[in-house]
Design a protein around this nucleic acid. Structure first.
Length: 424
RNA sequence: GGAGAGGUGGCUGAGCGGUUGAAAGCGGCGGUCUUGAAAACCGUUGAGGGGUUUUCCCCCUCCCAGGGUUCGAAUCCCUGCCUCUCCGCCA
């Protein structure tokens, strides 16, 4: 959520900056609602004040043993009038709040304009896509041929967009999780954290999956309103909800492996083949909670941390800045890391690293005590995948295949697989 | 699942329905004292919002959450959530 005070004072400028993501802010409507709000709120507060003063007087008179029936009569109609305007104010504030929740974050000045993926700005490339002397297979063919990936079995057990993995590939999938957690904890200074995979709706509002993106979530049946997490971002970032940090506690760096569950509503017909887009997948997530002044340096650093995994696995990739039309709702700036997939002959997203500035923190009421101002202020939140496990497995299978359909194990993973060099 | 107890400020912990946003203690911050530190003493110390072109002041809201009773609720009544103790069950 954006700062309501800023929306009041700098409305035109915010509207202008939101145009970069092709978002139209109804400035006139907001202005008129705000001025109505101000009038009614003033009236409510004046009436409340009157009530408080009179009630206090009644109390004092009663204590002295005076007759209070006259005073009670005076206060008679006040409550009714107050109730009416209070209801009116609540309705108005709810309306305003709903609008505030529907306004996306203001993009950082370095975010390029653009309508779609095609306008994203490539900022660097690492590694060279390998030239195969034959036509390389994609992971689906490789996986089914080797008996490692079984989409039919998953479809029987559950349905579309699930997978069953077997044998050494299942083992490598597990190894990837251990490997990434080790790198981020030992080399990058993240604290490993284990969290619930089921969350309540407060948490989803906190990180802005609700109310706008509820159709992406799997809700659980039962007495409680519970949801499966779509990403570790939800439970991990919500650790900061309603917390006021001391300056010396920041920055906080968490790394967390969880499964992720996404309904993928609205992506019908997209990536229907293979493991690229599943309802259930594993991810190692990086989350940083930082002081505002540190957030862009931290965002860059976190992106590099995610990249380092691909470098260690020797997988070619590129990094792009998402343009205004492609950037996520709550993000001020997002780097996508895209890995080279020989089976598709193109770069595909394997990590998305975003700086939300104070947009999430405002919803979460995640704050810190700023010693220079002496005030309680919002922190900045940053997160990114480090990396998506399923897609990493796909990238390894496709990049490390040989002509016999075998998969060579990347060197850094061999220690996690009893020294195994080739999966066949 | 059954039976009890409880949720108050950074922490501990008071709080007959009426100057209680909340006693007291601890902690934090500032000061006095000291060569320095400790101790002692003095002062100060919650959050959110609105008004006011505003380092001054005024007002409103918040004592788990949501409803209700009342002129007036931290205090009374309902519902929910959470925590603790005991019993049962269980990976």
């Amino acid at each position: 959520m954006l700062d309501p005070r800023l929306l009041r004072t700098n409305l035109d400028e915010i509207a202008k900056r939101l145009q970069i993501r092709s978002y139209h802010l109804d400035v006139d409507k907001l202005r008129s609602l705000e001025s109505k709000r101000k009038d009614i709120q003033t009236e409510v507060q004046e009436l409340q004040n009157l009530r408080n003063v009179r009630s206090k007087n009644i109390g004092q008179a009663k204590a002295k043993g005076e007759d209070i029936s006259q005073m009670l009569a005076e206060v008679d109609t006040l409550g009714e009038r107050l109730r009416v305007v209070e209801v009116e104010l609540a309705a108005l504030q709810e309306q305003l709040h709903a609008i505030y929740l529907s306004i996306p974050n203001v993009p950082h000045e370095s975010v390029p304009a653009g309508a779609s993926e095609a306008d994203n700005l490539e900022i660097r490339r690492w590694g060279e896509p390998k030239q195969f002397p034959y036509s390389p297979l994609d992971h689906v063919d490789l996986g089914e041929q080797g008996g490692w990936l079984d989409f039919a079995a998953a479809a029987k057990i559950t349905g579309a967009r699930f997978v069953v993995m077997r044998g050494k590939i299942a083992r490598m999938h597990r190894a990837l999780i251990q490997f990434m957690l080790d790198v981020h904890t030992k080399e990058h200074g993240y604290q490993e954290i284990y969290v619930p995979y089921i969350v309540n709706s407060d948490s989803l509002y906190g990180t802005c999956q609700l109310p706008k993106f509820g159709e992406e979530l799997f809700a659980l049946k039962g007495e409680q309103e519970y949801y499966l997490i779509p990403t570790a971002e939800v439970p991990v970032t919500n650790l900061a909800r309603d917390v006021i940090f001391e300056a010396d506690q920041l920055s906080i760096k968490y790394v967390c492996h969880t499964p992720c569950f996404r309904s993928e509503a609205g992506s019908y017909g997209k990536d229907t083949r293979g493991m690229i887009r599943q309802h259930q997948f594993e991810k190692v997530e990086l989350v940083q909670l930082v002081k505002p002044e540190d957030s862009y340096a931290a965002h860059e650093q976190l992106t590099r941390h995610a990249e380092s995994i691909l470098q260690k696995l020797n997988l070619p990739y590129r990094v792009v800045i998402l343009c205004g039309g492609d950037i996520g709702f709550q993000s001020a700036k997002t780097h996508d890391i895209e890995v080279w997939l020989p089976g598709q002959q193109r770069y595909r997203e394997i990590s998305s690293c975003s700086n939300f500035e104070d947009y999430q923190a405002r919803r979460l009421q995640a704050r810190w005590r700023n010693p220079t101002t002496g005030k309680v202020e919002l922190i900045h939140t940053i997160n990114g995948s480090g990396l998506a496990i399923g897609r990493t497995l796909v990238a390894i299978m496709e990049n490390y295949q040989d002509e016999q359909g075998r998969i060579h194990v990347p060197e850094v993973l061999q220690a996690y697989m009893d020294g195994l060099k080739i999966i066949e």
